[in-house]
Computed example of a mutant assay.
Amino acid sequence: MNSGPERRLRGVTYFAGLSGRTALVTGSTSGIGFATAQALAEAGATVIVNGRSQDRVDEAVAKIAGDVRGVAADVSTAEGVAALVAAEPDVDVLVNNLGIFEAAPVFEIPDTEWLRFFETNVMSGVRLSTHHAPRMVERGWGRVIFVSSESAVFVPTEMVHYGMTKTAQLSVARGMAQAVAGTGVTVNSVLPGSTLTPGVEEFIRDRVGDGGEAEFVRTERPTLLLGRLIRPQEVANLITYVSSDLASATTGAALRVDGGTAPTLIP
């Protein structure tokens, strides 16, 4: 591996500036979170992997080369956040990636599900950011990133409760960015489109049966300009950039890595 901040990231020379930084990625035992943990480690950061199961955390840590450790904690609850904060009280980069999704007719979603989605997808990031962002401000540098979704601006009819949480993340991230203005700490949202993770593979089977990725894109995501689903590493590349010194002038932003799915100009 190259010395200094210039490193090879999936075959591309990437000036990351993450050497000496510690990064926490929630929900990072698979999918986008795992790819992000890998990318940040390759960029020189010390990475903290998080998931609910100790076995899955240990398995993920073992797969990532670099300075990596893990904490098992369910951050969809206040108690889980408290446990994670107790184990890792100070980080330089916080990636609020934990999220759940499912398809459900909007008028059939019970209150408990609306609340479960909000607690998991929104409050996990709110609670962790409330702890870490002020401490980053004290140190004069930090990155907080909310992994939102193109569903925040292009709400899917079959997942309104999911879309609601992703829109909420945009408001939280923007408001927090305003609160830490001028401190050296940035807060941003990254908006992936449909990404080929294990959870999405199961979702595709539920929606289009044996039709697979191509049929899902054709029938369910026809505005996806890539013509295919996004890969987790492609999302991780943007998150890694936003985590770095290169993104020092980017804050309060909603950054799309959706393959052109959302037919809007802004964000």
Rank of each mutant, 00 (worst) to 15 (best):
L84T: 04
P267V: 08
H161M: 15
V208T: 03
P134M: 04
G199L: 03
S194V: 13
G66V: 11
S76V: 07
T46E: 14
R231V: 01
A181M: 11
A43P: 01
Q38I: 07
S30M: 00
V85F: 10
L255M: 15
V187W: 10
A62V: 00
Q178R: 15
Q233F: 03
E150P: 01
I145W: 03
A41Q: 04
S151C: 11
R228K: 12
A37K: 06
G252W: 10
T77H: 09
G199I: 10
E158S: 15
A60S: 13
S3R: 08
G66P: 10
I109A: 05
F118A: 12
A236F: 06
A16D: 01
G99I: 03
R205D: 10
E201F: 02
R52L: 02
A247N: 06
V81Q: 12
A39Y: 00
P105N: 01
A86V: 01
R228H: 09
S151I: 00
A16V: 05
I48L: 12
S76N: 06
T120H: 02
T219Q: 10
S149Y: 07
F203S: 10
V155C: 13
T112Y: 01
G17N: 07
L24W: 01
R174T: 12
G33W: 08
T240V: 00
G70E: 06
A173H: 08
L9C: 02
G4E: 12
V185N: 07
Q178M: 14
T165C: 15
E202G: 10
A60R: 13
L40I: 05
G260N: 07
R143Q: 14
V85D: 04
S19Q: 02
S148R: 04
G182D: 07
A87N: 05
D111T: 11
F216D: 05
L238G: 05
R127E: 08
P89T: 05
E6C: 10
V93F: 09
L40N: 07
G51Q: 02
S149Q: 10
R8D: 13
V93T: 00
S151Y: 00
G17M: 02
V144T: 12
T183R: 06
L170H: 09
